[in-house]
Simulated assay, not measured.
Amino acid sequence: MTTEAIHAELVALYDGSTPVRSRWSYRGDHPYTVVAAFQTDREHWVEWVFSRELLVAGLTESAGVGDVRFSPIEEGGMRILIVEIESPEGYALLELDHQSVADFLGATEKMVPLGGEDEHFDVDALIDELTRV
């Protein structure tokens, strides 16, 4: 099982102009998920967890029907990844540099190849965690 982690800091744009810092993380021992945290003020980050598979799909086509959705677009000669996040507390549409997200995803694939997640996932540890009450 891979316990390594990958982290990337990316700048998103909110409403097309306001910069928002984001931290993207991927852990080899949680191979199915990506965590993206967006800074809402100096001390507060909002964290979203979604499947790596959703991010893979979202780099090439619109993907997601729930709280996290991705859409790649080209605007003014730039490739952009639109990230829509929604919760009962609010909604945000963020723009990220497509290549930066693709580079982050590529680093995750070097750690855990797509389709090889089950070789890095400790199902017994998950069962133990879920049944520990």
Rank of each mutant, 00 (worst) to 15 (best):
G66T: 05
V46W: 01
W45E: 12
V20E: 10
S87P: 02
L59N: 12
A102P: 05
G77K: 10
P113Q: 01
G66L: 05
V65K: 03
L54R: 09
Y14L: 15
L114I: 11
R79W: 06
G77W: 10
F70P: 09
G76N: 14
L114M: 08
A92T: 04
K110E: 12
M78L: 13
T33N: 11
P72T: 05
G90E: 07
R27E: 14
G90R: 05
L54N: 09
I73N: 09
W45D: 09
W48T: 08
A37K: 00
R23N: 06
F121D: 03
V35T: 15
G66P: 05
R23H: 07
Q39I: 05
S17D: 11
R27G: 13
W24H: 14
E89M: 04
G116Y: 04
G116S: 11
A92M: 07
A92F: 01
S71Q: 13
I80P: 14
T131G: 00
E119A: 08
V56P: 02
H98C: 11
A107W: 11
V49C: 10
S62Y: 00
D67M: 09
L59T: 12
S87D: 03
D122F: 00
F38D: 08
I80E: 13
I73V: 15
R69Y: 01
T60P: 02
I82M: 13
L126M: 09
R27L: 13
S17E: 14
E9R: 15
D103A: 10
L105F: 12
V11R: 13
G58T: 12
E74T: 14
W45A: 06
Y14R: 14
G115I: 04
L93E: 14
T3C: 04
S62P: 04
V56T: 02
G58K: 11
